[in-house]
């Protein structure tokens, strides 16, 4: 193998593994969108909150207890969001709900930093960072762990949405709030469940990201990385979120490694968006998104 090709391959693989992390954050968005038609901008801040809470608990109490505590926090949060934010806004245009989640994002960021402080923290999951040499490429065991967890989560969610009664109810809610109410699906309960699941996804994403890059406010900006993932995959598709994440992860790494040096670097920040724009030009609903047919 030539030097460049090997370099490109290494970039692709490490990009794919990072991409899986993006997928995890994007998954939170997709879940809430699928089940309530709300584009939840606060997903990044929920991830940040979960990671920060976990990081501050784990130094005092064992990992599994702190996980349970954080889980309880996220469940309470989900209920609070449903009660305080979503309930008064039933039957409002999606744009209004979107803006409300921006409000939630500001609030959560203030809350998380207000309680646990603004200084960056490390998050130790009790796992030594090792790298393995696979055919000349270096792969970290953290990456592999992330990939495995993301895979399990994906399968569990797909099973939940396709096979369980609750999952099917949630899909009905996302199709049409009023029709779902008419056939007797408790709308508010469905929303509460969705936000709780999104909270659990936030914990997983927060734990994995936090242990890789440390826990700080910039973690919330992860949400921004997940947006082009959603666009490419389609905003309401779980497989789309996973595949979109992989594409973005690999593409931005390749772009930064191969094109970056020629134009002065730093293109990693916006390259995913550029890619998303190109995809949008061809497929306005993303790769797997459902096409919405509009009628007057």
């Amino acid at each position: 193998m030539s030097e460049t090709l090997l370099f490109a391959l290494e970039l692709t693989i490490s990009g794919l593994l990072v991409g899986l992390m993006y997928s995890l954050v994007a998954l939170g968005f997709v879940l809430i969108y699928k089940a309530s038609g709300v584009f939840n901008f606060a997903q990044g801040d929920m991830t940040f909150l979960a990671a920060l809470a976990l990081a501050s608990f784990v130094v005092k109490i064992p990992l599994w207890i702190s996980l349970i505590v954080v889980l309880a926090i996220m469940l309470i949060l989900a209920m609070a969001v449903e009660r305080i934010v979503l309930k008064p806004l039933v039957a409002r245009p999606p744009l209004v709900l979107f803006m409300a989640t921006i409000g939630v994002a500001f609030f959560l960021q203030g809350l998380a930093q207000g309680i646990w402080g603004t200084q960056p923290r490390g998050l130790e999951l009790g796992l030594a960072d090792q790298t393995y040499d696979v055919a000349g490429m270096f792969i970290s065991n953290m990456d592999i762990l992330g990939a495995v967890v993301a895979g399990i989560l994906l399968i569990a969610l797909v099973w939940f949405f396709q096979k369980t009664k609750t999952g099917r109810a949630l899909r009905a809610v996302s199709d049409d709030h009023e029709a779902a109410l008419a056939v007797g699906i408790p709308l508010r309960k469905a929303w509460g469940i969705t936000w709780a699941i999104a909270g659990i996804v936030a914990i997983v994403a927060g734990a994995l990201w936090g242990s890789r890059v440390g826990v700080q406010a910039s973690l919330a900006l992860l949400a921004l990385k997940a947006l082009p993932v959603l666009i490419i995959g389609g905003i309401d598709s779980i497989p789309g979120a996973i595949l979109g994440g992989l594409i973005i992860g690999a593409a931005e790494n390749l772009a930064e490694g191969l094109i970056g040096p020629a134009v002065g670097g730093g293109i990693k920040n916006f390259f995913p968006y550029l890619l998303a724009l190109i995809v949008l030009a061809v497929r306005p609903y993303g790769l797997f998104g459902r096409e919405i047919i509009e009628r007057v």
């Binding site: 409000g103 500001f106 609030f107 203030g110 603004t118």
Partner: peptide, 12 residues
Amino acid sequence: NVENMIFGALII
């Protein structure tokens, strides 16, 4: 951080 919280709460 109370400023962020109030800002977010006010939007909602």
